[in-house]
Design a binder for these strands. Sequence first.
DNA 1: ATCATTGCAAACACTTTGCATACGC
DNA 2: GCGTATGCAAAGTGTTTGCAATGAT
Lengths: 140, 140
Amino acid sequence: MFTNLKEILVKNEISPSYHRLKIYECLMNNRTHPTADMIYATIIAHIPTLSKTTVYNTLKIFAEKGLVASITIEDNEVRYDADVYFHGHFKCLTCGSLYDIDLSQLQLEKKLGANRKINGHLIKESQVYVKGICKKCQKN
Amino acid sequence: MFTNLKEILVKNEISPSYHRLKIYECLMNNRTHPTADMIYATIIAHIPTLSKTTVYNTLKIFAEKGLVASITIEDNEVRYDADVYFHGHFKCLTCGSLYDIDLSQLQLEKKLGANRKINGHLIKESQVYVKGICKKCQKN
DNA sequence: ATCATTGCAAACACTTTGCATACGC
DNA sequence: GCGTATGCAAAGTGTTTGCAATGAT
């Protein structure tokens, strides 16, 4: 499959600098939902002058433009996903890996309790949240 | 409604010190899903010697014992909920308030897209995650 | 007297910011 | 040459840790 990453950036109103392309490419090739730091570690081998600041800033721009989704599961790290279609995530408490999960497999009305399984992964805890503008703030 | 908070702590294997009782009481009376800092700010008026460290440590103990749920939505704050029954949360991007939402109202199979509403709150983005032990780690 | 709880200050880790430099059109 | 992208170092922030002091039984 060939997609012109440069074009995607341009379509999203992001000027396609070399660094930005590399960061986006890294996210597209590496579907492990990496943190800014992981992306930095991957690319630094190819671009030794790369700064962590650039990675942070670039990911922020990508997320603002809707090019990537930022995923908050732990309070001390943000992970990034090039797949912006709505889906769930499973994080392993042992190895820290982050897997995609298909939400149609979840029956959220029932208590999504501990010790059930999904895709073979053992569930310990779950969380659903929505962000937006609350009733009160819409009026103001 | 009268519940003996002290007994609840003891049942959860937490020795019921004065500070711990106050912190738990604060969470029970104040269903706004406060952060450690908010709890600290509330209680410091009654216990001027209270330390933030104690609040952090106590909440950590509560969460470990399953007495309260810790909620991670933003990467820079953990919020606490005395209601450990599984439910969703809505966070207002404008005022920062955190509301409970009934998950049966969410139709997660469909794209939980922007500009829908739930309980009158306008949805901008959503997230579902599960934590546990992944397939690979179960084998090891 | 002993053991658990508390609290201060310092350490931590991820992220953001200010500002100077370098790059590209 | 001008405007944007980059990068360094420092600041910021919520949280954790080390360790001494305090408190309870």
